[in-house]
């Protein structure tokens, strides 16, 4: 034993202080980006609007507005991160969200009480996610193709659930949305923020705990980081992947409820493009394509950045710049992730 401790050859010879700085940057850069985006948007607004009046980016109403419409993406970010950490992807999240929104609105408009409608929709989301998991794990269809199939399938079902000639489930034709319907996504319950936002916060915190303190979180990282090592350790990687798809399905259903409640209608197209936002958010949060790496909380911050950017931009440039900015940000995030990982592998 003494013989062992005398040697010091195993101490990492590289500069520990430099490593600490770069590790600090890697962990917290996302907060700097958030502050930067908010600052730039606030400053950029100065010449257009009064500093302390309605136009200023950093006013209370604006912040509440952003956080309120962010709820769906914030809800989804954490679960999507865990799935990407395990090395898998779900392109059907947008359609899952749309279908859940339609189901939720249909239930509500037909007189099902809030909690029942809420619970049934979550079960539907679970089922949709589990079906993705089934295609990937059991039928061994490549994740991209499997979830492209369900992207189309779920969207088609959502469209069919809405009557011909109507664009969404909403009041009219003898049926009326109940009074409570938009309470969840709109009304401030705490600090002026909606229930949907607080649910997103709770879901994210729960997933932070899942990532750090549960078998699922650990096995997700192990499966994505080194699948062979995971299998050799006796981890049931199939069960892990399946569970993660189901979790993403439930999160997408929650997101669908939030969006549906906010818009007061069940829109079968409301989730379109959500898979892109989710990928973007997760990339911004530094999640690696190859799996293993990625934090739930950082994706949450990434979602805030995207929403701030989207809303902030609307006050600066016309709405039709949005697709271009999102697309550019996506490429930029992918490229910067690449540069970071290349630097690491070069060490």
């Amino acid at each position: 034993m003494n013989l062992m401790s005398q040697h010091s050859s195993f101490v990492d010879p590289s500069n520990p202080r430099g490593n600490k700085v770069s590790a600090f940057l890697r962990t917290y850069y996302i907060y700097f980006v958030l502050v930067l985006v908010v600052t730039v948007l606030s400053v950029a607004n100065l010449d257009r609007f009064d500093l302390f009046e309605r136009g200023n980016f950093l006013n209370q109403r604006n912040i509440i507005h952003i956080l309120r419409i962010s709820a769906p993406l914030l809800t989804l970010a954490g679960a999507f991160t865990l799935l990407m950490v395990s090395g898998y992807i779900d392109l059907s999240v947008g359609s899952t969200m749309s279908l859940s929104a339609v189901v939720y609105a249909l239930l509500a408009i037909n007189g099902v009480p809030f909690f029942a409608a809420f619970a049934i929709t979550l079960v539907v989301g679970f089922g949709l996610g589990a079906f993705n998991g089934f295609l990937v794990v059991r039928l061994k269809i490549t994740p991209v193709i499997a979830t492209l199939i369900t992207l189309s399938l779920y969207k088609g079902i959502a469209l069919l659930l809405v009557q011909d000639g109507v664009s969404a489930i909403k009041s009219g034709g003898g049926l009326k949305m109940p009074e409570w319907f938009n309470f969840y996504g709109r009304e401030g319950v705490l600090l002026g923020l909606s229930s949907a936002f607080w649910v997103a916060v709770v879901v994210t915190l729960a997933l932070v705990i899942v990532q750090n303190r549960s078998l699922l979180g650990k096995y997700a990282a192990a499966t994505g980081g080194n699948p062979m090592a995971a299998k050799l350790s006796g981890i049931n990687t199939k069960k892990t992947i399946f569970s993660l798809y189901a979790v993403v399905g439930v999160a997408a259903a929650l997101a669908g409820i939030a969006r549906s409640s906010f818009m007061s209608l069940g829109d079968p197209l409301s989730g379109d493009g959500m898979e892109l936002s989710a990928i973007l958010v997760v990339l911004l949060g530094g999640t690696a394509f190859s799996g293993g790496e990625g934090r739930v909380l950082r994706s949450f911050i990434g979602a805030l950045i995207i929403m701030a950017l989207t809303v902030g931009m609307l006050t600066l440039v016309p709405a039709y710049y949005q697709t271009l900015v999102i697309g550019t940000t996506l490429l930029a995030a992918a490229a910067s992730n690449h540069l970071v990982s290349r630097k690491e592998s070069a060490q």
Binding site: S214, K218, A222, G224, G225, N226, A229, S233, I235, G292
Partner: peptide, 21 residues
């Protein structure tokens, strides 16, 4: 070839597959 998960901590790797839960 090494069968450790680079992205996890040393402790997480040591207990991988043997966790109490």
């Amino acid at each position: 070839e090494l069968h450790v998960v680079d992205e996890l901590t040393v402790l997480d790797n040591l207990t991988l597959g043997m966790e109490r839960s």
